[in-house]
Amino acid sequence: MNCCLCEQTLRFVPSWRGIFLYEPPEVVCQLCRNEFSKITGPCCKFCGKEGETICRDCHYWEQHGYPDLIRSGKSLYHYNDAMKDWFHQYKFLKDVLLAQVFAKDLREVLKNERGVVVPIPLNEEKLRERSFSQVDQLLLAANIPYRHLLEKCGETLGEKTRQERMATKQLFRLNGEAVPKQLVLVDDLYTTGTTMRQAAKTLQQAGAESIRILTLIRA
C-alpha cells in the first residue's frame, strides 16, 4: 500500500497499541500527515476559529438575526495548502478514499457523543453529479452513526461572494424526521458560517434545544 496523497510506500510501524487493539491501517505517510495543521490553543467558542473567544464572523451573526442558536462549536484543522489540496482531490476530483485520512480524528471527537450526529446535506442534483456526499462519507469512514434531518433547498453557496453568502435567506428545510433535543451538526468546511447558522435556525425552530457544531476545516 502506498500513501494515498504522495504515493510513497507506507512503512509499517509496529506499536503496542497496534498489537493489543485493532487499529485501521494508516492511509497517508507521516510526512503528508505533518503537513496538515491542527487547530490548537484558544479559539472561537462557536466556530472554532483560532484566536478570540468570539470571532468576527460569529460576532456578526450573534448581532444580526442569528443569536443563541449554537451552544458551542469546534473545528479540527486549519485550511492550509495541504488541506486545500486534500479538499480539492476529495470533493472535486471525487477521490472517495480520501475520507479515510481524517477518520481517526473524527472518531476521536465523536465517539462519546450523546447528541444525534446530523450531517449537512447536499441537494439532490449535486449529489447525483458528485456521486457521494462528502460529509456522510467522512462519518462513514470514521464509523460514526448519523441521521439526516435536513434537505437542501435549491441554492448552493459555492460560487457566491462573501456578501451574497451571508445574505442568503433560506438554505434548508426539514425532511420530516423527528428532531431530537440534542444534536451536533457536522460539515466539512466552515467558511462564513452561513450554512451552519441557517441549518441551526431551521432545527431550532423545529424544537432542537442544544445545537453544537463540528467542522473538519475552519477556513
Partner: peptide, 14 residues
C-alpha cells in the same frame, strides 16, 4: 464505493 449517481456499488480508478 456506494455511488449516488447510479445507486449501485461502483468502482472508481485512482
Amino acid at each position: 464505493y456506494t455511488c449516488a449517481t447510479c445507486g449501485k456499488i461502483c468502482r472508481y480508478c485512482r
